[in-house]
Write a protein that binds this DNA or RNA. Sequence first.
DNA 1: TATGAATGAGTGTTCATTCAT
DNA 2: AATGAATGAACACTCATTCAT
Lengths: 195, 195, 195, 195
Amino acid sequence: MKHKKPKYRQIIDAAVIVIAENGYHQAQVSKIAKQAGVADGTIYLYFKNKEDILVSLFQEKMGTFIEKIEEEIAGKETASEKLYMLIEKHFALLAADDHLAIVTQLELRQSHKELRLRINEVLKGYLNVVDKIVITGKQTGEFRDNLDLRLARQMIFGTIDETVTTWVMNEHRFNLQELASQVHELIIYGCGRPA
Amino acid sequence: MKHKKPKYRQIIDAAVIVIAENGYHQAQVSKIAKQAGVADGTIYLYFKNKEDILVSLFQEKMGTFIEKIEEEIAGKETASEKLYMLIEKHFALLAADDHLAIVTQLELRQSHKELRLRINEVLKGYLNVVDKIVITGKQTGEFRDNLDLRLARQMIFGTIDETVTTWVMNEHRFNLQELASQVHELIIYGCGRPA
Amino acid sequence: MKHKKPKYRQIIDAAVIVIAENGYHQAQVSKIAKQAGVADGTIYLYFKNKEDILVSLFQEKMGTFIEKIEEEIAGKETASEKLYMLIEKHFALLAADDHLAIVTQLELRQSHKELRLRINEVLKGYLNVVDKIVITGKQTGEFRDNLDLRLARQMIFGTIDETVTTWVMNEHRFNLQELASQVHELIIYGCGRPA
Amino acid sequence: MKHKKPKYRQIIDAAVIVIAENGYHQAQVSKIAKQAGVADGTIYLYFKNKEDILVSLFQEKMGTFIEKIEEEIAGKETASEKLYMLIEKHFALLAADDHLAIVTQLELRQSHKELRLRINEVLKGYLNVVDKIVITGKQTGEFRDNLDLRLARQMIFGTIDETVTTWVMNEHRFNLQELASQVHELIIYGCGRPA
DNA sequence: TATGAATGAGTGTTCATTCAT
DNA sequence: AATGAATGAACACTCATTCAT
């Protein structure tokens, strides 16, 4: 809620569009300004530099993303249900926003190491949500006692992320949201056949 | 057998070192040439352009990578054992080559979209190995019948890849190889408690 | 009497401080406005543009400078005494105002050629005072008959100016005012030994 | 003799022309490159950055300048004769090179403080020559015993420099070289009438 | 009078690639 | 085969000035 200034959001939204349509390396500040309908210099009244646009973009979008997911999860009882909602909502939100999906899955990963480190900071918010689900699952007995928190987190995030990336790279040739239940099953039961 | 020319490998090995030590965006052709002990222009006698160095690098290294993993897997009977060897060898090979781990997990992902598409082509070789294991598992009845091949592949690759990336980003603060059995267990049984 | 508006002087004084403390090229209009406690736009109610601030600054300060020197000189009889007062007062006034000394000797000289031409116009007032002393000296017989007015003026101004600049550049490591009598001697008698 | 590469001198000479004709602030690197008949990038094979061109320019030209003056002076016996040659040669060299005179007297003085400090370093070579003359003069008894070295240096340099600057600013409306003897007289005997 | 958000022109530098030797 | 000097396109950011309020 820090930034109510309409131009702040205008510029971030413009950045998403320009990056999605032109690629990270072709997203010049002047192009973003033009898309936002402001002068180049105006960008610098709201952002420290180009990197700041990108980090802010990720913070804003990921913030909203996490908030929405947490809302959905809060209404669920079991870890399994929470996990399902996480996956379902994650897929739904990205499926609903083509540009954002391209930007987060493909383009922003081309950024400089330093920027990626700052993006990872933001990502920690998401991973915390995952962690809470895993901890809940272990407490309720739904998940194995000997489950390693970090590995479980990596497995859950890795599976979801790889699925979304494949979907984006295949240019949405399959329906992402429909996969939610299968991905959920895979994470809970693994590849193995139930005993 | 394709390239016996010593300079071809010399340049690729130089590229790995330069990229690992300087980062993708600081790995200029002139730096690679210097590290390889050749003139800038000589690079272009062996590679079409800079992108070609990187794709070739990935092809060469990933080729060897896949060969070694296939060797190990061939000696195993069950899908579960094959999967274990895949994970174990994957971790072992990267843990043994610092530079290569950094280059494949962090640096090369900063490349242009186009280059990443070509890298994905190479990656298919690896994913085919995963696919074969999954298919075997379904045939032997080790894996569930209703397992979706593509999703299983994404889950396996996503989990392994995310684990390695975390390890590289944490600057090797934990022992990667030791995690092989836990990751294996996670992929086979999932997070859930056995019935 | 020209400008009674308090903000006019406020802005000029702010400019002297900002230029002295930040250097000519780091003295942005917004910084001057902030120092003066007015909005950026307000500057343009009192000055045509940035250059106008600097020229006005020089005019105001140099005007006061010349007035004070003329006062002192008027009380003296001989050209030699007048010259001495000129030097002494020149040194005294700049030694008493650190900021002004830095601005006139170092910073303002970095200005564009056009601005420097306008500054030279203002400087003529000072050179006229010098000229009057030289003319007086020739009339009274204190100075040589064949003395070229322009050259004498350049020698007097050049020597004084170079001395002040050296003093400013040496960060006031020596006492400027104490040099007045020696500089006076040098100008009257030159380097040579009296016959 | 460090740089025999023709392009090095080509670029420096181009810089003198471009700065003299366009002014310091309109002397873009691309303009200098064009004048030198090389590509923009070529500049950076010979100079670290733009500032380096300007410092090198000053070093090269001032180096030659000092060398020539020292040669002339070496052939003279008395301090007075040496001083005369210094002035005469100083005037002659600048009168013979319009562009260089403009660059050193007007344009280069607009440079940033840092660059001016580096230019001052180079200038010390010239001031050393002046110092030697003054010291000689005191030893031979031509100059006063109580002459302060630093003040004498400032007087000599200040007078010569101010004269040249006036000449350049007046667009060569008078003959500079002809003034040498009068300036010499002024420095040796001052404005005063011989006793 | 006074404000301050918005404007947009302008430029030093890097580096993949070429080609004469 | 090998060299390495030369090329030239491309871009983030600053800041004096304006003008609606």
